[in-house]
Amino acid sequence: MSDATVRAPGAAGVPGKVTDAAPAARTRRWRPKGSAVVMGLYLLFLMLPIYWLLNMSLKTNAEILGTFSLWPRDLTFANYEKILTDPSWYMGYVNSLIYVVMNTVISLAVALPAAYAFSRYSFMGDKHLFFWLLTNRMAPPAVFALPFFQLYSSVGLFDTHIAVALAHCLFNVPLAVWILEGFMRGVPKEIDETAYLDGYSFPKFFVKIFMPLIASGIGVAAFFCFMFSWVELLLSRTLTSVDAKPIAATMTRTVSASGLDWGVLAAAGVLTIVPGALVVFFVRNYIAKGFALGRV
């Protein structure tokens, strides 16, 4: 590929001769072998830091600090054991999972009817509303950290799971509405009309006919709500102290008098990657659509 790109600007400089300039004998490969090398290097670049984290999580602290090795010489699962047996550690995961699931359920429940309305009807202010939702997805959490803290403190929700779940609705509800709307517009309107002619009521039509049709969209929206709530730290850390402390905030705890407990920190990090890694396979073909808010 490289020779083609180098030569091409020269060819482009001669207008009119562009297509004739290439000798007929020069056959082009559309996907040169070079692509495999490029992809290999890129994936290596992506995987190396993750591998290093995994590597560290399987070492003892003495080995991490004492010797430098590319793989664990003295394989140990002690770091994982510590996390999975110590409640102050594993409760972090439980807390995170609780608020993430709550958030996903709430987001989808309110986003489904709204997305349907946006995809099917036009009503007063619909465009403004749709735009306003988008601004919330784009809003910097840093702007909302302090007011959220005060709002949830004043209504007595501070340090509860529901507080974090509601706070994350700020960006997840708009995300879900946009993604679902993107999927729903692909369903022909005639289906709705036929169902109504057949005497289906709206709720019955929606649950029995429409939702199965956009099942993949619901799955993708759920995945993205889950993911964005799972990766967020700023708001969840600001809104919790003890009872609902997320794993991300627990991870800052490994700093003690004796220095950082690198092994446990790495193990905790690896465990936070697991949920995403487990389900990404199922949404691999929709992942671009999800990140692009249902467009693409």
Binding site: L46, L233, I247, T272, I273, G276, V280, R284
Partner: peptide, 15 residues
């Protein structure tokens, strides 16, 4: 490729 490339996107930001 799709799955491996998505991995960094799904890691919590503090991690």
């Amino acid at each position: 490729c799709l799955v491996l490339m998505s991995l960094p996107l799904l890691i919590p930001w503090n991690v």
